[in-house]
Write a protein that binds this DNA or RNA. Structure first.
Lengths: 217, 217
DNA sequence: TTGATAACTAATCGGTGTCAAGATAGTGAT
DNA sequence: ATCACTATCTTGACACCGATTAGTTATCAA
């Protein structure tokens, strides 16, 4: 972009312009979220760590919710990446759906605080187009999976209720786990075996529902 | 407890002691949550509305998370009430489970902000026994429902994965809806028909899983 | 070189959670 | 009835936060 050591020849001084503050703010916020919590994120703290003053972030984000919306969007972007890769690696529609579910759960549970930012709408800016677009892409992955299954089974009808049921199940498991509710209630420390079971039940649910949509009304 | 107009004979003056500040704080917080949001709750505001000063709440709650834990516990208490009533009204184990699910969703969607407080562990005090007890009671309702179904079908084995899958599905739907994600993604404004469909699929999932636990493996 | 504009600083406002020290009211023993 | 004791509430403060305003500095285009 531009030479960061342009001013005050010779010795290295902080340049007046950061050069890439917007992305630095997003990365800084993500770092704090990963190490601590969303609650630990303040615009002042992020700015301080980067080395700019309180008001600097406001030249790149309208307010705190705008920054967190960008953080959430970034989370959805990696979710879409991982989900797309998982689907690409699956041979059959069935394998693809289960792989997508596992990618969803892995992503959520490996980055629990970031995952919460993605779904805490009170942290988001109203009508953030970037966020809506990329979260829509993520939803599209699931819609695609279920539609391929429908095609495979020759079913027809409205897939929306089934899609929402599937999303609810996976999202609910991720939410309960990242909040510590499941661990506290069951004493289980390893989420993966339980997730395998849940995804297996999801499979049977989707199949029996689609089969019912093939045969009768 | 004691006469609230004891001091300064005749005209009504504010008594130095509130008399029931603890419950007033909880009610005040719940009121703000119902009308606005958890984010709108501050100890100072609640105290102000009641007519006491900033520091007064600290004689009844260790900190803000302690107050919100009490609010969350109150939410679980009414959930247990409604859930118990729903189960009592159901004739068969099947009806009971669906009624419990609908009670869960109704309670969540009618009081979305309060519902979030119940499950936002970052708002809770660590190791709040009251909260853990009453949320455990709520979980017990679901465990009981599924165990009655197991008995009806003569199945045997570990019910935990199935229980978690059921909870995940209902909780996920409630979470997605109260965050506005479903409404935004689908354009649906009335949650009830969709909830009926989801609960119907939950039924079939639970039944097919329990039947598998009766026959083989 | 010169504006114009984007990026940043300095200073400030109202609000928050939390704490320490002091004032007041109720309670129980004598 | 008096006295000490304790729970309750107030006053005043600290550090932090989101956000705004006005001013400063760098960059870039003409």
């Amino acid at each position: 972009m531009h030479d960061e050591m342009a001013s005050r020849g010779g010795t290295s001084r902080k340049p007046y312009h950061h050069g890439n503050l917007r992305e630095a703010l997003i990365d800084g916020a993500i770092a704090i979220i990963a190490e601590q919590d969303v609650a630990a994120v303040s615009l002042r703290k992020v700015a301080r760590q980067i080395g700019v003053t309180n008001a600097a972030p406001y030249h790149h984000f309208e307010n705190k919710t705008a920054l967190l919306s960008a953080v959430a969007a970034e989370g959805f972007r990696t979710l879409v990446e991982r989900g797309t890769a998982a689907i690409a690696a699956g041979a059959t529609p069935r394998e693809q759906m289960t792989a997508l579910g596992m990618a969803y759960l892995s992503n959520a549970i490996e980055h629990p605080a970031h995952y919460q930012v993605m779904f805490r709408s009170d942290l988001h800016q109203a009508e953030c187009e970037e966020l809506e677009a990329v979260s829509g892409d993520a939803f599209g992955l699931l819609v695609g999976c279920i539609d391929r299954l429908r095609e495979e089974l020759g079913a027809q009808g409205d897939l929306l209720p089934l899609t929402l049921a599937a999303w609810s199940m996976v999202h609910g498991f991720a939410t309960l786990w990242t909040q510590g509710a499941l661990e506290k209630k069951t004493g289980i420390v390893d989420w993966k075996p339980m997730a395998d079971q849940v995804l297996r039940m999801l499979e049977t649910m989707v199949y029996s529902e689609l089969e019912a949509m093939r045969d009768g009304a």
